[in-house]
Simulated scan of single mutants.
Amino acid sequence: MPYVIGIDGGGTKTKAVLLDETGKVYAVSKAGPSNPTAVPSEQLKTTLQCILVGLQLQAPNEYKQVKAGFAGMSGAGDAVSRSHLKKIFFDLTEGRFPIWVDIDAINALYAGTLGKPGILQIAGTGAITYGLNKEGECERVGGWGYLFDDQGSGYHISVKALSAVMQAYDGRGKATLLTKLLIERFSITEVPELISAIYRSDNSKTVIASLSPVVLLAAEQKDEVANHILSEAAEDLALSIMTLHKKLFGNAVHQKVILTGGFIQHSPLVVSSLKALFLSKGYAFDFQFPRIDPAGGSAIAALHYLNEMPKIEFVSNFHASINTVEEGGVS
Rank of each mutant, 00 (worst) to 15 (best):
A59I: 01
V207S: 07
N35T: 05
S41Q: 12
S187E: 15
G95V: 00
G118I: 01
Y26E: 04
A16G: 04
S331C: 05
A127V: 04
I241D: 00
R82E: 09
A276C: 03
T129Q: 03
I51A: 02
K30N: 10
A226I: 07
F249I: 06
Y26K: 03
I88V: 08
M73R: 01
S201A: 15
V225G: 04
V270P: 12
I183R: 06
F90G: 05
N107L: 03
L178P: 13
A76R: 07
K180Y: 10
V165I: 15
Q65E: 14
E62Y: 02
Y305H: 15
D170S: 13
V25C: 14
F285K: 07
D170A: 08
L194H: 00
K205M: 01
I258P: 11
S83P: 02
A161I: 11
Q221W: 00
V270H: 05
T129M: 04
H228D: 11
P268V: 03
I292Y: 01
D78K: 12
T260S: 05
M1L: 08
I258C: 15
A38G: 10
A320H: 10
G171N: 10
I51G: 01
T179I: 10
K174H: 11
K13E: 04
T47E: 15
Y110T: 00
I300V: 14
K311I: 00
P213H: 10
G143H: 09
G282C: 11
P268R: 05
L120N: 00
V270A: 08
A127E: 07
L18P: 12
T22D: 12
F148A: 07
Q221M: 03
E190I: 10
Y63E: 02
A71R: 02
F70S: 00
T125P: 13
K256D: 10
Y305K: 13
K134F: 06
S273K: 15
A284E: 15
I99N: 03
I195W: 03
I5D: 08
A38I: 07
A301N: 02
T47I: 13
Y283Q: 12
K180S: 14
E62H: 04
M166N: 11
L55Q: 02
V141M: 07
Q56E: 15
P290E: 14
V159D: 05
Q49V: 00
A276Y: 06
S331P: 11
P290M: 13
Q121S: 14
V159H: 04
V53C: 01
S196A: 12
S331N: 02
Q58M: 05
F318H: 08
D150G: 02
T93E: 09
L55Y: 07
R96F: 00
H254L: 13
A16D: 07
V25Q: 13
A252T: 09
E193C: 01
D223W: 02
G142P: 10
N133F: 14
S163V: 14
K205V: 09
L182A: 08
D91S: 13
G250R: 10
G297P: 13
F249E: 02
G297M: 08
I157R: 09
G32V: 13
N323H: 11
